[in-house]
């Protein structure tokens, strides 16, 4: 059942592509890209949004994921065996709660 639905879906998608020749297809892709560049070039809003996306990803991937987390925040485990040992220790050792008070 699911294979038939998947096949029908692929056939439906293919029906849009099959009439396109490769050259025409590449031209369409180039058209989408040039339209994107044109929009960014002519629209102030698009420039602002692009800038926000750029800054955001610089912070998320560059600063947080690339620098801050691995260097200062991420718990350090030498390997999976070490991590298993730590987790088993935390699971099997009796606890008591401490507060700052």
């Amino acid at each position: 059942m699911s294979a038939r639905v998947t096949f029908a879906f692929i056939a439906y998608l293919w029906s849009f592509f099959k009439h396109l020749k490769v050259r025409q297809f590449l031209k369409t892709i180039a058209g989408i890209f040039s339209s994107g560049f044109e929009l960014i070039r002519s629209s102030r809003l698009a420039k602002i949004l692009l800038l926000i996306v750029f800054i955001k990803f610089m912070i998320f991937y560059g600063f947080l994921k690339g620098f801050l987390y691995p260097k200062y925040l991420k718990p350090h485990y030498e390997n999976d065996a070490h991590r298993t040992e730590q987790v088993l220790h935390d699971l099997t050792t009796p606890h008591k709660i401490v507060t700052d008070d």
Partner: peptide
Amino acid sequence: FAIGVGTGIILGLEFGT
């Protein structure tokens, strides 16, 4: 979409930290 995209990345990072 442009402003919201990627805000979930922080959640993913928090699982590890």
